[in-house]
Simulated assay, not measured.
Amino acid sequence: MDISVVIPLLNEEESLNELYDWIVKVMQSNRYSYEILFIDDGSTDNSWKVIEKLSEKDSNVKGIRFQKNYGKSQALNAGFKKVKGDVVITMDADLQDSPDEIPELYHLIKKENFDLISGWKKKRYDSKIRKNLPSKLFNAAARKTSGLKLHDFNCGLKAYKNEVVKNIDVNGEMHRYIPVLAKNAGYTKIDEKVVAHQARKYGITKFGIDRFINGFLDLITIWFLSKFGKRPMHLFGLLGTIMFIIGCTFAFYLGIDKLFFNPTGRLITQRPQFYLALVTMIIGTQFFLAGFLGEIILRTKTDTKRYTISSKINC
């Protein structure tokens, strides 16, 4: 199979038929073999019924329905597990991503041998305050911490080699930083392509102000995991060692001073350096324990179920 199109969605019943027709037109005009996998992330409208009807007339349409809303990352994760195409395309269901971009994205992955191509919506039609400004801040911070020179990490329109999506774990809300996950997994041929951005045609955006805060928290998380996720003792052990040495140095100083230079002066417990030494040694010990616990968790963890699927179509 040439192409798998993965489309996570939440309450997009009005756009699904139009999006399906558009994708099929592109696929047939380029003679691609394909599958379209809709991931219904707990929609409360008639989105699933639309997907069922589409699957009845076209066996290339597949669907996964979550029991409730788990988030875009979980939807992509479920889709990535099922895809069979050599090239995997992800796009949003709100018609803001153009299926006309698929042939060139496919060419870049299949013929130019890129691992991942991320869309760049250079000209946007979103609210500048609600989406444009936060996106620019996220992207600037992500470029700085990851070393990837991409302009739009969070663009829903991306293309991947099949092996890439099979070897990354998209969880939490890490869909914003999939290129970083791919880089951390060892895939370095990552680039971007300027893609068309459409104004939303139906419904309203699903993003709120919490997207601004969550984006930065996720970036901190992915930075930490990329550097210390496999070796937490390297961070916590180092911090624990530094704090413990500081505490022991103050304690040694107080002991020497009391024994040899000021035996009749204030008690050690009356000096502020005593409490500084005590606190830093305690903190150092706690950092060591955190590192040990992290190592134990890494060695004993098992995969946990992150979402519940209530229905499937053709998969």
Results as ranks from 00 to 15, higher is better:
Ser4Ile: 03
Val6Thr: 05
Glu14His: 10
Glu14Tyr: 04
Ser15Val: 07
Leu16Asn: 04
Leu19Ala: 07
Lys25Thr: 09
Gln28Trp: 07
Asn30Ala: 00
Arg31Cys: 07
Arg31His: 15
Tyr32Trp: 08
Phe38Ile: 00
Ser43Asn: 02
Asp45Glu: 10
Asp45Gln: 07
Asn46Tyr: 01
Asn46Gln: 09
Trp48Lys: 00
Trp48Tyr: 08
Ser55Lys: 03
Asn60Val: 01
Val61Phe: 05
Gly63Lys: 01
Ile64Asp: 03
Arg65Lys: 13
Lys68Thr: 08
Tyr70Ala: 04
Gly71Ser: 07
Lys72Trp: 02
Ser73Thr: 07
Lys81Met: 04
Val83Glu: 01
Lys84Ile: 06
Val88Cys: 07
Asp92Ala: 05
Ser98Leu: 06
Pro99His: 01
Pro99Met: 01
Ile102Ser: 11
Glu104Arg: 08
Glu104Pro: 11
Tyr106Thr: 08
His107Ala: 09
Ile109Leu: 01
Asn113Gln: 05
Asn113His: 08
Leu116Thr: 03
Ile117Met: 05
Ser118Arg: 02
Gly119Pro: 09
Asp126Phe: 03
Ser127Tyr: 04
Lys128Ile: 02
Asn132His: 06
Leu133Ser: 14
Leu133Met: 12
Ser135Ile: 05
Ala141Trp: 02
Thr145Cys: 10
Leu148Phe: 03
Lys149Gly: 13
Lys149Ile: 03
Leu150Glu: 08
Asp152Thr: 07
Asn154Cys: 12
Cys155Ile: 00
Gly156Phe: 03
Gly156Leu: 02
Lys158Leu: 05
Lys158Phe: 00
Lys158Asp: 09
Tyr160Leu: 01
Lys161Trp: 03
Asn162Tyr: 05
Glu163Val: 09
Glu163Asn: 13
Val165His: 04
Asn167Trp: 06
Val170Glu: 05
Asn171Trp: 04
Asn171Glu: 11
Met174Gly: 15
Met174Ser: 14
His175Cys: 10
Leu181Cys: 15
Tyr187Arg: 07
Thr188Trp: 12
Ala196Glu: 15
His197Pro: 13
Arg211Thr: 15
Phe212Trp: 13
Phe212Ile: 13
Phe216Gly: 13
Ile220Trp: 03
Thr221Asn: 12
Ile222His: 07
Phe224His: 06
Phe228Met: 01
Phe228Asn: 07
Met233Asp: 11
Leu238Met: 13
Ile242Val: 13
Met243Cys: 14
Cys248Thr: 06
Ala251Lys: 02
Leu254Pro: 14
Phe261Ala: 10
Arg271Glu: 11
Tyr275Leu: 06
Leu276Glu: 12
Leu278Val: 09
Thr280Lys: 03
Ile283Phe: 11
Gly284Ala: 08
Thr285Leu: 09
Ala290Pro: 15
Phe292Met: 10
Ile296Glu: 09
Leu298Cys: 14
Arg299Asn: 15
Thr300His: 10
Thr304Pro: 10
Arg306Met: 07
Thr308Gly: 00
Ile309His: 02
Ser310Tyr: 01
Ser311Val: 04
Lys312Gly: 00
